[in-house]
Design a binder for these strands. Structure first.
Lengths: 329, 329
DNA sequence: CTGTTAGCGCCTTCAC
DNA sequence: GTGAAGGCGCTAACAG
């Protein structure tokens, strides 16, 4: 593999000259530039980005850390991140945190392979995040709160969303409303649950723990939770699923048992994933401003990189989306 | 930021000793190792991966290049890639080729930032791929053929799939079958189209160019193509869409016009994306072995990295998936 | 405008 | 077992 040295030699100039020419730095005569470019071409020279990054102690790329590259992601969020990253002349790479603290993601976090990171990956420990965040390595987390001056938290107002969803169910006349939760340690889940309880309290409906079932944010989990709810006899009038995937799993459980949604039971999800509009009945849900969350996150990273100070936490509003999975009245 | 030098100094040993200790190389006394580790801990030392990669001229990571990180991807494919990459102790990063030949992706391709790459991104030029592939930098392409000994082509048997789909329509008694194509320069599209024509020919049905409409693999494109088909009056009895997204767009066009699928017209898609089973009616389609394609690709990369020789092209079989968008007979 | 040179942070012979 | 020293390939002063 040809190096810049080879190019310089072939062009009959010094390495620095070759470097200037190759990088379009206005310090070299056009004739020299041509010579260098020609030599580079002939040798099929490709710069070694690693060496250049090392020298400049800067990579010009930011990482988006996802718990699983193949997961059902919010493409809107990725789009938001992508758009502002590239429009700032930075590169974006996505890496997976499968494997937790010894995953690719953690490696990139720790080893200065990128200039900043956005993490949406519950399976990475908060410790790992704390250990990596520094003044010149800002991190934005989307799924938890981290007490560290160099990590910023961007979140959707999950509590408000949960409140709105539950309130809607109440407004439609339902009194017994179950909550199918996400993983108990999920920040998002906790907040949605708080909203659920707050809405109940606001309507002076007592909260019954028998009506909260554990799920795990997966379709399968929603399916199972729903089956156990059905098996319990005495179905509630409505269910608030902590996310759409689980609600869709629930839909399947109901359909198998011949229980009609929304005639027999009303349900609401959370997220407004793409599928939500396509299932039957189309799912009433709470939309997250995903694009905004993504673009805001990168914006914050750039601000921190520029040495500006930013707030520790940003909370984005949700939007209630009414479709057909709640009984009209 | 502490470097290995600082650690060595603090531990009172030479840099090399620190390096050995840190990397668990069995050359240092346990006492020294402890000293070094302690110093590293105290300084919150994090190795600089870039420097280490540079020195070793090896990154231990492979790149998956996608035309758009936020696109509707085959998560199965990504999973296949991810699984075998990590199980080989390598890291995987995904990068976007938005921006074509001056995108993040191209940068990673060219600049030795990874040890190998899998590309599924039509917006990257074949030239860029050719220029980057080398003996020690294998590339697997999933969406085209590239004449270069260091780039391998893994593809699904699109032609067979197209043939099967069309044959099925024929078998169900349809004689006039339209083809809604993908982008004309898409390799996949061309192959599917070949299959379509071959099936027609095998049944001695003449091919009418009026029944092939240009689409672009997007839902919107399928919608538009379908609208023009409808506007043309004289609808065919069936339509073979070159992918599911377009078929779903078509479904919408039909539903707006009150045309029933499959009663009034039969349709078939290609890919078997997740949504395919959820739309109404559930879409009959051709499934691609996505997981296998992904895992095979990485396998090949590792083989090439190990200096073994592999074939130039691999073709995977498709599977016909019958659902309810084709009229029974 | 061009060349010389000193590192970026790490790994790895090679002596001791 | 430990230390000194030489790069990996590139950039950016600094001289000329």
């Amino acid at each position: 593999m040809a190096t810049i040295k080879d190019v310089a030699k072939r062009a009959g100039v010094a390495v620095s000259t070759a470097s200037y020419a190759l990088n379009g730095i206005n310090k070299v005569s056009q004739a020299t530039v041509d010579k260098v470019l020609k030599a580079a071409q002939e040798l099929n020279y490709q710069k070694n980005g690693i060496a250049s990054d090392l020298k400049r102690t800067k990579t010009n790329t930011i990482a988006l850390i996802l718990s699983d590259l193949s997961g059902p992601y919010f493409s809107e969020l990725i789009k938001g991140v992508q758009d502002v990253t590239t429009s700032n002349g930075y590169d974006l790479i996505a890496c997976s945190s499968v494997g937790g603290d010894k995953s690719t993601a953690t490696k990139f976090l720790r080893e200065k392979r990128v200039d900043g990171a956005i993490v949406l990956a519950t399976n990475i420990s908060t410790e790992a995040i704390k250990a990596s965040a520094r003044e010149d390595f800002p991190i934005v987390v989307l799924d938890r709160e981290v007490a560290n001056p160099h990590v910023i938290h961007v979140e959707v107002d999950n509590q408000q969303g949960g409140y709105d969803a539950t309130k809607h169910l109440l407004y439609k006349g339902h009194r017994s409303i179950a909550y199918v939760s996400g993983p108990l340690d999920s920040h998002d889940n906790k907040e949605r649950f708080k909203g659920y309880k707050a809405a109940l309290a606001a309507s002076e409906i007592p909260y019954h723990s028998r009506w909260t079932i554990n799920g795990d944010f997966t379709r399968e989990g929603g399916y199972r939770a729903t089956r156990t709810l059905i098996a319990q006899q005495n179905l509630p009038e409505a269910i608030f699923y902590a996310n759409d995937e689980m609600a869709i799993g629930g839909l399947q459980a109901f359909s198998e048992k011949g229980i009609r949604v929304p005639e027999d039971i009303s349900i609401i999800g959370f997220d407004d994933i793409q599928l939500a509009a396509y299932v039957h009945p189309p799912l009433t849900t709470v939309r997250q401003p995903k694009y905004e969350a993504g673009s805001l996150s990168v914006h914050l990273i750039f601000q921190m990189l520029a040495g500006e100070s930013v707030d520790q936490t940003y909370k984005l509003a949700t939007e209630f989306v009414e479709r057909d999975s709640v009984k009209k009245r």
